[in-house]
C-alpha cells in the first residue's frame, strides 16, 4: 500500500499481538510524525529489554539475570508453588501479596487450536522442581477459561503420582459484583463452591 520504510514499519507493528492493520497504520504514522527522540526512546527501550531481560531459569518469570527477584529471595517458601500461564499473571498475584511461596510460569496454556501442546509449556521443569524442593502444595492459578482449565487438569494428573497437594483457585462471583449480571457458568461454579456459614 505504501512504499519503503513506512510499509516496513506497518508490517512489523501489525505482527504484534492485538494490533491489526489499521492500528499498525495509525501507530506507524504517529511515530513518523513524533519528535525524533520519542521514536528513538521507544526503539531503545525495545532493544534494551531484548538484551537485558531474561527468563528465570527456575520459574520462567521475567528476570534481569539468571534468577528472578522472587527466586532470589530466600525468605519465600520453596515448598508452595503457584502455577500461572504468563509472567503477567504472576505479577498480578504478586501485587495482591497473597502468596508467600514461589511461582512457576508455564508460558501459556494448552490450546490445540493455537498449536500449543503440553510439550510447549514448562511442565517438566515444574515436575522437577516439585521433586527437588520437596514441594508440599501446588496451587494451579491458570486462567478460569476453557484452555486454562484443561491445562490445570493436565498438570494435576501429572502431579498426582508425586502425592503433592494440588489445589485450584476458586471460580465464582467477583467481590463487589452484582448477582444479576453473572452468567450461567459462573453462577453454577459459584454454587458448586458454596460454603457453610
Amino acid at each position: 500500500m505504501y512504499e519503503g520504510p513506512i510499509q516496513d514499519l506497518i508490517d512489523e507493528l501489525s505482527r504484534l499481538p492485538g494490533i491489526g492493520p489499521k492500528s499498525a497504520q495509525r501507530l506507524a504514522f504517529y511515530l513518523v510524525k513524533a519528535p525524533p527522540d520519542e521514536a528513538k526512546r521507544l526503539a531503545e527501550a525495545i532493544v534494551t529489554a531484548k538484551e537485558r531481560i531474561f527468563f528465570c531459569r527456575e520459574c520462567g518469570n521475567v528476570a534481569e539475570g539468571d534468577l528472578c527477584r522472587i527466586c532470589r529471595d530466600e525468605s519465600r517458601d520453596r515448598t508452595v508453588l503457584c502455577v500461572v500461564e504468563e509472567p503477567k499473571d504472576a505479577a498480578t498475584i504478586e501485587r495482591a501479596a497473597v502468596i508467600k511461596g514461589r511461582y512457576h510460569v508455564l508460558g501459556g496454556a494448552i490450546s490445540p487450536l493455537d498449536g500449543v501442546g503440553p510439550e510447549d509449556l514448562r511442565v517438566q521443569e515444574l515436575l522437577d522442581r516439585v521433586e527437588r524442593d520437596g514441594v508440599t502444595e501446588v496451587i494451579l492459578a491458570t486462567n478460569p477459561n476453557l484452555e486454562g482449565n484443561a491445562t490445570a487438569l493436565y498438570v494435576a494428573a501429572l502431579l498426582k503420582p508425586s502425592g503433592v497437594r494440588v489445589t485450584r483457585l476458586a471460580s465464582g462471583l467477583p467481590v463487589g459484583g452484582d448477582l444479576e449480571y453473572a452468567d450461567e457458568v459462573t453462577l453454577s461454579q459459584a454454587l458448586e463452591g458454596r460454603r457453610e456459614m
Partner: peptide, 29 residues
C-alpha cells in the same frame, strides 16, 4: 462448541501412536 473444536484439532493434528498428550484433560472438559 470451543471444547469440541479444541479436542477435534488435537485429534486431527496427532501423528503419533496411541493417544495425544492432554486428551484426558479435554475429555474431562
Amino acid at each position: 462448541d470451543r471444547t469440541v473444536r479444541q479436542r477435534n484439532r488435537l485429534l486431527k493434528d496427532w501423528e503419533g501412536k496411541g493417544a495425544p498428550a492432554g486428551l484426558e484433560a479435554w475429555d474431562a472438559e
